[in-house]
Design a protein around this nucleic acid. Structure first.
Lengths: 266, 266
DNA sequence: GCAAAAGTGTTGGGAGTACACCCATGG
DNA sequence: CCATGGGTGTACTCCCAACACTTTTGC
């Protein structure tokens, strides 16, 4: 019961805390954001990485990210960093899908000092490759699925783990949210939407059934004004849709079962 | 492209950063953990709150929590705080279900200084009320569901929001994980398990179907050694089970649909 | 015997899958 | 007229919600 915390009690202080606290009395924490930015292009799921020019892990690739500023919330910092590192105009970035993943707080995750990082995932439609040229030495999209992650080396810091968690999360979220529309342009065809699912999950889906399920989920997509559009050179032009307002899908679009579930009996 | 971050680049530094960084050059961040600890007792979902004795929000109730120490990961800090505030012995706490919820980083969430809090949820079986007496002025279980949250005042800081997020999360996680067993003692009956679901969700479930679904999900529960046990005074004693090893349920136990889904068309 | 809780059986409707089939367009 | 992608229809299967029924205990 004697709390081993020294000093200030900024958030919770049931015990008789010292009447004054010194913010600078302790080893400071730094707080950063890291971003796993995904896009889908040419039937591949890509993730944005930047090449480090600085000492720890110099020359290695890493997730983009940076410091949370003194009067900035983590999600605002993530949005700002995303704008800076992709070169996208601010208004575009404001509308993008951005979501907190989780926080990584291992004391030794950065060799220089104590850095707690709030990781986020961002989903963007196929961008006109403006990526490099921000303040990163190098910046590139790397294939991530369905043919496996293909980056030159292990990533800096614990970013391999963060990227793995992020990929797992978006795979799962495609099932029960309308997230997939974030990979598509403002108006898209159901064929394009299906390609997003097939690319991220790495599985083929039955087109008629996919179509029915998407249209059966209220608020997932709604008809978009404008003429039909052709996806490839051939074939019938498809009707355009835009993202609906629903956050969660009822009923969900479940992934086809590939391997038998991991029951540990036999 | 000119990064507006001043100074050190501990995690990501593509630009020509200063060759040395001063950890103390900036307004320091504090990192805390907050805990939403739930239990089920007498057909009620309860949440553990502590009464603040200190100045900001003095006298108000708050989620337990505290500082992350300089060489401690966030989940370790959460486990330590949980042990301290509940008075549970360390070995018991080590086995408890604890999970990161999300991180709250609004710059003004604490009036004194910049505090970033990594919130966690913890699920415990019905404890022998050892709660108060740790380092909290007051500590109590408050009803949270199914009859609504009934605490004396609004909670301190942004803890109302954290608690709401935590409740939503555990409701959802009961569907597709074996989480509900964390509310039960080591050996439990299927009737007790069903009561957990009914209490958290606030809905009645069909007993025969519940039983079948639980037993059909591989690794959810497995027979426990020991004699049958009586849940109440009357009725047939029930077979005992213990938690299986499965993390996710195949197939999931879906909540019965109460309200029509939130489609925004008509 | 009766009430209460555990456990088993049965059945009808609905959802999802796997197809076959037609439509529109470019070459 | 054929290849290609969009869109519709249909039948079969399996799951599952609903409810009846049996079993085991305390009083």
């Amino acid at each position: 019961m004697p709390t081993s915390e020294p000093g200030p009690e900024p958030d919770h202080g049931p015990e008789p805390a010292p009447p004054t606290y010194d913010k600078y009395a302790f080893e400071p924490f730094a707080v950063t954001v890291d971003l796993a930015v995904f896009t889908v292009r040419h039937q591949e799921l890509l993730v944005l990485l930047v090449e480090r020019g600085e000492d720890p892990y110099a020359g290695r690739w890493a997730l983009p990210g940076g410091f949370v500023q003194p009067r900035e919330a983590a999600d605002a910092a993530a949005r700002r960093e995303l704008a800076e590192e992709t070169g996208l105009p601010q208004p575009v970035v404001e509308g993008l899908h951005l979501e907190q993943l989780r926080t990584y707080s291992d004391p030794d995750r950065d060799p220089r000092m104590r850095v707690v990082s709030v990781a986020h995932t961002a989903l963007v439609p196929d961008l006109p490759e403006p990526v490099a040229g921000s303040d990163a030495a190098g910046a590139r999209w790397f294939p991530c699925a369905p043919h496996g992650f293909r980056a030159p080396e292990p990533l800096a810091f614990d970013h391999d783990r963060i990227l793995g968690d992020a990929y797992e999360r978006i795979c799962a979220k495609l099932e029960y949210t309308g997230l997939a529309t974030a990979f598509c342009p403002p108006a898209f065809t159901l064929g394009e939407l299906q390609q997003v699912y097939e690319t991220v999950w790495g599985t083929a889906l039955d087109r008629p059934n996919f179509r029915r399920k998407v249209l059966a989920a209220p608020g997932f997509v709604e008809p978009a004004p404008g003429a039909r559009r052709r996806t490839s050179q051939r074939g019938k032009p498809a009707v355009l849709y835009r993202a609906g307002g629903a956050a969660v899908l009822h009923p969900p679009l479940l992934r086809p079962v590939a391997a038998p579930p991991e029951g540990q009996d036999i």
